[in-house]
């Protein structure tokens, strides 16, 4: 048997998170196949045959698959599942939407947001905003997994030579109509994938203060800007900048927290960062317990100094 990875597409092709899912799937010890679905995506499917570690690409093309609706994709997964020992996708808003629906139809207890594969049936997944890790065993037979893309390194987009098979599309459910998608136009890196993230808490004082204090430093560092839930709730930062369990889980090379106290739900969302820096005037702030480097100082003094020091180099 083989393992089937469900690809997620954007306007540029297969998303990097899918290549992380391929990395995770290959750890199950079987051949990895990749399912590419969409409307008029033959070119992307052909390109996908070059992805390292994939032995076969399955291509299903239909208008019904254009926007990744779970109602239309789940029946296709159910049909394909008989040939596979596992279905794997990245735990993105796409994977989290589609796979549980398919799992219910297949009567499988799925494992979501896997962060470690111990063997073909034993997995580690985070709970309680990453404050707890659970090691779980899935029943034998078909396994359905979503994997956290930030902990599995994406396989190379080239170097492979997979076979290509075209599938007959399943019928459209007709229940749901996709109307529109509004992606935020970013003038800086996306939070979930940025190499450097700087974030602020409520002590930045106001929406204006938040922006004017953090933006210049973010520009120097080429960083994404994040915020605590408290800062978002106080209207100081936009919703989509929230870092933590209820927002975005990040794992950058460098995470710098300014005036962040370190609530459990925030810390859970940053602890896979390579280096964490905390700047807080309160020496007892819990954020210092997870920080690699701490400065007990006023962020309003530190940020301009830091910016000047980085610019000087």
């Amino acid at each position: 048997m083989s393992v089937l990875v469900i690809a997620e597409l954007d306007s540029h092709g297969i998303k990097a998170a899918t290549r992380s899912a391929i990395c995770a799937a290959s750890q199950l010890g079987e051949d990895v196949h990749l399912l590419v679905t969409g409307n008029d995506v033959a070119g992307i499917a052909l390109e996908a045959t070059k992805i390292a570690g994939v032995s076969k690409v399955l291509h299903a093309d239909a208008l019904a698959y254009a926007h990744g609706l779970a109602e239309n994709l789940a029946p296709l997964l159910v049909q394909l599942a008989v040939n596979y020992s596992a279905l794997v996708a990245a735990a993105t808003s796409f994977g989290k939407n589609v796979l549980p629906r398919a799992a219910a139809l297949l009567d499988v207890a799925m494992v979501s947001e896997v962060i470690q594969i111990i063997n073909a049936t034993t997995f580690v997944r985070p709970m309680y905003a990453g404050n707890i890790n659970a090691t779980v065993v899935a029943p034998a037979g078909l396994r359905i997994l979503t994997i956290r893309p930030t902990v599995f390194e994406a396989v190379a987009a080239t170097g492979g030579a997979a076979a290509l098979e075209t599938l007959t599309a399943t019928a459209e459910s007709g229940q749901t109509t996709w109307l529109s998608r509004d992606l935020v136009q970013l003038d800086r890196p996306e939070l979930a994938t940025a190499r450097v993230v700087i974030s602020g808490g409520r002590s930045l004082g106001s929406a204006e203060g938040f922006k004017s204090t953090l933006t210049p430093l973010a520009d120097v560092l080429g960083a994404a800007i994040g915020a605590t839930r408290a800062a978002v709730d106080a209207g100081m930062a936009p919703n989509d900048s929230q870092v933590g369990q209820t927002g975005t889980v990040v794992a950058p090379e460098l995470y710098m927290a300014f005036g962040v106290s370190g609530a459990a739900q925030h810390v859970g969302g940053i602890k896979d960062s390579k280096v964490i820096v905390a700047v807080n005037i309160d020496a007892d702030a819990p954020i210092f317990q997870v920080a690699d480097y701490g400065l007990v100082a006023d962020l309003f003094t530190v940020i301009p100094e830091l910016e000047a020091a980085l610019k000087a180099e």
């Binding site: 009567d107 207890a109 707890i132 659970a134 779980v136 602890k271 905390a278 480097y293």
Partner: peptide
Amino acid sequence: APVLTVLQIAEPPARKPGKILN
């Protein structure tokens, strides 16, 4: 319904102790 069997519930490995800089 089939269920997952829990083998262990644990805190994630702690990060190495940090340094307070001046």
